[in-house]
Design a protein around this nucleic acid. Structure first.
Length: 423
RNA sequence: AGAGAGGUGUCCGAGUGGUUUAAGGAGCACGCUUGGAAAGCGUGUAUACGGCAACGUAUCGGGGGUUCGAAUCCCUUCCUCUCUGCCA
């Protein structure tokens, strides 16, 4: 959530930056300031009147104690009059505050200065490419054929149990999921991240705090009986650990990692993108999350990008890092780097990680603050990234490590799997 | 799921309608004291909004109500603990 005071003091800058994110209704900025003016005025009148009521009530107490009933009664009449005036003021205030909230949550985060202009994924900037394009055997197949051939994942039975997009992992396929999860968590904790295992459902307040509500309401599964949402990423529960807190400066940086299944309705997805493991409704992911001092978030973002890059290198996958353009970035993010791995069998890049700096956008919503050296309260910055999302890594390894005889494994995974080959 | 007990500041904890302007204690910070430290003494120590400021307003889990006045009474909701039930 953006802060009204920031919009007030940087109106033109904010509009310019919102335009980079292709936010259509720039007049909303002026509107929000006007509503806030109204709010301030109402509050001033309300506070004045309430102050009179409070003072009089105290006086009445004094009169009652001394037995001066007449004076007390006279004052009571005054108070009754003021309270009558107070009522409409209170109503207006509630109304204006709701309106302000309703408008301000519509603003996406402002883009970082490094964010390239552009609207479509084609306009994302390739920052780095690494690794080798794998040489596949002549009869190479895509992962959706390989997993069938070796009975690693069964989509049909998953669909019978639940619906399409809920894969059923079997045998070595299931074990491989577990092994990847463990390897990723170990890799993250070795770098200083603390491991969390969070709830997989969250309440509306948590979903709001990280920006899923109200923006992505339709993308989450909603258990209406209890009003819980199935998490679309571990980012939601883990970032919310620090909702409504005032931290000490020395607590920062907070580094968390968490495994979770992720549930996404993916309403509106279609076409070849959704084949096999490329896009599913339930998948496993290991996430890294940091809450840091605002001065450090740029630096930390680079560290997180380097961390994920090292992880991909260790898996021997060809990858590229994209800096997303304004039009392709998420709602709450100030800057995002996407990681893609190359699938030689599909001859396309698959997104496996997205690392973002949210700056104070989430923490302001969440009221996650810290007390700085001068005793002032500041909003921390939050960042997160996948490290890593499993299905496409699974797909890429299965495809890129296929041999005439089966599927090999990256060296780092062999001790975890207890074998040199997956199959 | 049923019955009961609770939810007060960083923490413990008092407080059942009116100097509560939330007692008291602990912790923390600063100062005094000291050769240095501890102890002791003193001072300070929540957040949000409005205001240049003085200051005002709100907040005792959340929401609503009664009252001139609510931490305190009423309703509602969430959470924690104990017991019972069910259960991996």
């Amino acid at each position: 959530m953006l802060q009204v005071n920031f919009l007030r003091q940087n109106t033109e800058l904010a509009k310019k930056k919102l335009a980079i994110k292709h936010f259509a209704n720039l007049n909303l900025v002026d509107e929000v300031i006007a509503i806030d003016d109204q709010r301030k005025q109402l509050q001033a009148s309300f506070d004045d009147l309430q102050s009179k009521v409070n003072a009089a009530s105290k006086e009445i107490g004094g009169f009652m104690a001394k037995g001066e009933k007449d004076k007390a009664e006279a004052l009571k009449n005054d108070v009754a009059e003021w309270k009558k005036q107070l009522e409409p003021l209170k109503e207006q205030m509630t109304e204006v505050e709701a309106k302000l909230q309703q408008v301000i949550v519509q603003f996406p985060n402002l883009p970082h200065d490094l964010v390239p202009l552009g609207k479509t994924p084609e306009e994302n900037e390739v920052v780095r490419v690494g690794g080798e394009t794998p040489k596949l055997p002549a009869n190479a197949e895509a992962h959706w054929d390989l997993i069938k051939k070796y009975n690693l994942v069964d989509f049909e039975t998953g669909a019978k149990i639940t619906g399409s997009g809920f894969p059923l992992y079997i045998g070595k396929g299931a074990k491989f999921q577990r092994v990847l999860t463990q390897y990723f968590l170990d890799f993250n904790t070795a770098a200083g991240y603390t491991e969390y295992l969070p709830p997989f459902m969250v309440n509306a307040a948590s979903a709001f705090a990280t920006g899923q509500l109200p923006d992505k309401e339709g993308q989450m599964y909603h258990a209406t009986e209890d009003d819980f949402y199935l998490i679309p990423t571990a980012e939601v529960p883990v970032t919310n650990v620090f909702r409504d807190t005032v931290l000490k400066e020395s607590d920062l940086p907070l580094q968390m990692t968490a495994y979770s299944p992720c549930f996404r309705r993916e309403a509106g997805s279609f076409g070849k993108d959704v084949r096999g493991l490329n896009r599913v409704h339930q998948f496993e992911k290991v996430e890294i999350i940091q809450i840091v001092h605002p001065d450090k978030s740029d630096e930390v973002l680079n560290e997180m990008v380097a961390h994920v890059e090292k992880l991909l290198i260790s898996l021997g996958l060809q990858y590229r890092i994209l800096r997303l353009c304004g039009g392709d970035m998420g709602f709450a993010s100030a800057i995002t780097y996407d990681f893609e791995v190359y699938s030689a069998a599909q001859e396309r890049w698959l997104e496996v990680s997205s690392v973002s700096n949210f700056q104070a956008y989430q923490t302001y919503r969440m009221k996650c603050r810290f007390k700085d050296a001068d005793g002032k309260i500041q909003f921390a910055h939050s960042l997160n990234g996948s490290s890593l999302a499993l299905p496409r890594i699974f797909a890429a390894i299965v495809e890129n490590y296929q041999t005439e005889a089966g599927i090999a494994l990256p060296k780092v995974l062999q001790p975890y799997f207890g074998a040199e080959n997956l199959v």
